[in-house]
Design a protein around this nucleic acid. Structure first.
Lengths: 327, 327
DNA sequence: ATGTTTCACGCAACCGGTTGCATGTCCTCG
DNA sequence: CGAGGACATGCAACCGGTTGCGTGAAACAT
């Protein structure tokens, strides 16, 4: 089997504690012995067992990242950024997908709890109560959701939604639909509040919807029925599905209806029409989340709240309100 | 801190070994004591520490899954399937992204090695030599690549490529371009071999290319210059980028050029035109991979090779060869 | 009544590391 | 020359579990 610390100790004629120190506190061991030990270790292919180390130190140097749906292109940039950033701090990130199932989410958190120093909860589907309860097991940082007393990274979707609605209003749209996400979604709620604060447009709320292309496709009839000429969708996936659905019903985007998404995922940039969307600072959020988590791991619960700005990227899926048919 | 096995033992008046057995070998302990222990454990919120258990049993009940690029929509279905399937076997899978960097890949494998019972290597970028060397540390199963002596899950891209080329030939295309992926890609090589075996079409090889939309966009000029009327792209992302690129140069798909992708990702189904593509059994591959891995973990290195069939999904991005302009 | 199984559980070593304390050696300084 | 300090290393307990072995008691057979 793989070489252990005792193998190395024996082969280099020192006590295991010296070998241990060679790796975890090199300055405590004489340069000469250290080199000898390192040589022997190299020779035997020894590598410290992180799990065993964790048992005594209480630090695994691992982080967990829990996400509802890896397929959602919104997450990968966040995951990559978190992973890369954590690596610079000598941490590894393990990702798990909950399949949008709170049950699975809870189970995963429990399984992860003892194997990581902290968990990044991205757009969790669990209730606040459950999250607070689980928090006893392992430090959290929550992304894209507000849970009281917990370190949180928010992207200011409210601001983005406001910009989006104002953009539509500026193009002359007077009736716009808000296509929301899963029921109880924190994001949907924020978007709604921000949209309602904009003057001069009638809002109609359509939802809840599955947060994917399917959801967008399915909501198309409701959108046409609503008489709205502008739409702010829950995310780009929904927006793209919706555009497809409108198209099937003979409506042109942006000719007949203007559609705005949220997230600025890459395929939205290649979609036709290119999607006007609220850009989310996902990579920055990933890095920030790691920072907050490591900080709270090191210093004990500091419940910081970081809010990152969003922006509107205007492309081709929005245009002036169409002339009334009767004109 | 969290309750340990000794806390439970003390509180329920039995020896730690009895508590241990209550969880890991319930049949060895009297029903009455077992219930008492369970009650106390529940009460104290005790949960066995998987990491500590792993130290003695040598089984972490975790699997690692290493993937070059999570953003590539080809992977999530595989990841999800693997994850879900593993869960039914009481295993968890941790995903890590290497950012297409062999260096990072190797580092991740080493870090993961001691914390998981086996690793799923999906389309690894590492050399065969490196993989074989690392194999001493931890069992592998390789997906989408052939490494001698290692359990492997392959999707029969050769078959799919043949179907694709035959489809184009059947539509009258006589000159088709093969837009390949990164240099040295195992998949590209297979596609090329299979395509070459089809009679009646001239093949032109274009590559290497970045395996994303960017790559497809960038290769568009070469495609038009090649005089090909049909294209088989490395994957759907490349195909979509290419279609966009052709469009920018005033060419219609499928009017002027027919394009086939590979992977059957969802956004290809919503793209306009809807993408004709080689469907890959990604979910099945994910499940198969964990089966193979668990088997090889349990029984020691059985180097099975599983090959999964692919199919052609004909949609709208392919059509009859255009009439020569001069006709 | 005695011998043999079976069952339930305790004992203690062990997995692979870490770390506070003790020991011993060599320097330095008054 | 002796006290005190710095340095390098060994010792052994500990992290949170698992498990082979041994023991006592109850159940069964003879």
């Amino acid at each position: 089997m793989a070489a252990t610390i005792r193998d190395v100790a024996q082969a280099s004629g020192v006590h295991v504690s010296t070998v241990s120190r060679t790796f975890s506190a090199p300055h405590l061991v004489n340069a000469e012995t250290r080199n000898r030990v390192l040589a022997v270790a190299e020779d035997l292919g020894y590598r410290p067992n992180r799990a065993a180390r964790a048992l005594t130190t209480g630090r695994t140097h691992n982080l967990g990242l829990i996400v509802a749906d890896i397929s959602n292109p919104f997450f990968p940039p966040l995951i990559k950024a978190a992973q890369a950033h954590a690596r610079t701090r000598d941490y590894h990130v393990f990702v798990a997908d909950t399949d949008e199932d709170p049950q699975v989410e809870e189970e995963l958190i429990k399984a992860l709890a003892k194997q990581v120093d902290g968990v990044l909860l991205c757009s969790p589907r669990l209730s606040n109560r459950a999250i607070e309860r689980l928090h006893a097991d392992v430090p959290f940082v929550v992304v894209n959701r507000e849970v009281k007393g917990m370190p949180t990274v928010l992207m200011d979707i409210g601001q983005g939604a406001r910009l989006a609605i104002e953009h539509l209003a500026g193009l002359g749209h007077r009736r716009v639909a808000l296509v929301s996400g899963p029921s109880g979604s924190w994001t949907s709620k924020r978007m709604r509040e921000a949209a309602a604060a904009v003057d001069g447009v009638d809002l109609v709320y359509l939802g809840p919807n599955v947060p994917t292309e399917q959801g967008g496709l399915a909501v198309a009839p409701e959108v046409t029925a609503s008489g709205a000429t502008g739409v702010l969708a829950y995310n780009d996936l929904v927006a793209m599905g919706l555009i497809e659905g409108l198209h099937e019903r003979g409506l042109r985007v942006p000719g007949d209806v203007s559609v705005i998404g949220v997230d600025d995922i890459v395929s939205g940039r290649l979609n036709r029409p290119r999607l006007t969307t609220v850009a989310m600072p996902t990579a920055a959020a990933g890095r920030m989340a790691v920072d907050l988590l490591l900080q709270s791991v090191a210093e004990g619960g500091t419940a910081t709240l970081a809010t990152l700005a969003t922006g509107l990227v205007v492309r081709e899926s929005t245009g002036p309100v169409p002339e009334p048919a009767g004109s």
